[in-house]
């Protein structure tokens, strides 16, 4: 079904809409529509995220950023549309995806230790009934070390700060040892040190050839953190390299009246030097 000529045309970062998903993109969607009620939350969206890059999903509150990510993963049902992960249906690519949901989406009073949560990321390798071997446990501890949380392995998760909880979620994603990392607002409500630690880990993943796609809220850090921007407000508003897709015009179009012109100017100035 894949037409190589169109796939190549779509891969140069201009993200020309094509009628099929390019096979070399870690995550590509065509005509994705999601609806919770009568009004669609995401309407007929095309997106092609580049490989070996950090991509941001940007848009105002209620624009469908998180819904877009969840629908691409199959966590919420889609009304229509096609999703391809590394050119295959997502069911065949689950081992290649790591997912970090919003921190606030779970109950942190759940009776589990930090190590318990990280070991959940090993599920695809251990299976339903497989034994959690010493080697697997060591792997989980190693992932905790990479986010600077090795000393907290046996803490109950409810005793952690917000930033520490977010690091545990990232460690769980690292334990999945994926090629594509999908994160839902990884910097929401975390301290500056944690934000630094997380972005270092994510950039390290990219430099190791992995692909990162994150729902991102803070417009001032887009230019410093990301290579590729995808702007959404129910519909796709802009997509491409940050330099061309994340501009005053596209922000105006995406945020409408919700973002004053002066704020957009600030964003454009603040991120430019990073």
């Amino acid at each position: 079904m894949h037409r190589p000529d169109l796939a190549i045309a779509a891969h140069d970062g201009q993200a020309l809409p094509t009628d099929t998903c390019p096979a070399d993109s870690p995550l590509a969607v065509r005509g994705l529509t999601v609806s919770y009620g009568e009004k669609p939350a995401v309407f007929s969206v095309d997106a092609t995220f580049p490989a070996r890059a950090m991509s941001a999903i940007i848009g105002p509150n209620g624009a469908g950023k998180s819904t877009f990510l969840k629908a691409a993963l199959g966590v919420v049902p889609r009304l229509s549309g096609e999703v391809r992960v590394f050119g295959t249906p997502i069911e065949k690519a689950r081992d290649r995806i790591a997912y970090v949901p919003q921190r606030a989406s779970v109950d942190w009073d759940f009776p589990a230790t930090v190590l318990d949560v990280v070991q959940m990321g090993l599920y695809r390798r251990v299976g339903l009934l497989g034994r959690m071997s010493g080697r697997m446990r060591a792997l989980a501890l190693d992932c905790l070390g990479r986010v600077g949380m090795a000393d907290f392995a046996h803490r109950q998760i409810g005793q952690l700060s917000g930033g520490q909880q977010q690091r545990v979620f990232l460690a769980r994603a690292l334990a999945q040892d994926a090629d594509l990392y999908l994160l839902d607002e990884p910097f929401a409500g975390v301290d500056a040190a944690t934000e630094r630690a997380i972005i270092d880990v994510l950039k390290g993943l990219r430099d190791a050839g992995k692909s990162v796609v994150a729902v991102h809220h803070d417009l001032s850090t887009v230019r410093g953190y990301f290579d590729h921007a995808f702007l959404i407000n129910v519909r796709r508003m802009a997509e491409g390299p940050v330099e061309t897709a994340f501009t005053a015009e596209t922000l105006h179009a995406t945020y409408g009246g919700r973002l004053a012109t002066t704020q957009i100017d600030e964003v454009m100035l603040s991120g430019g030097a990073a």
Binding site: G74, V75, R94, M120, L182
Partner: peptide, 14 residues
């Protein structure tokens, strides 16, 4: 255990 703690993550795992 996984689905009770984090249903979305469980679904993403298949």
């Amino acid at each position: 255990k996984i689905a009770t703690f984090d249903e979305g993550f469980a679904q993403a795992l298949g």
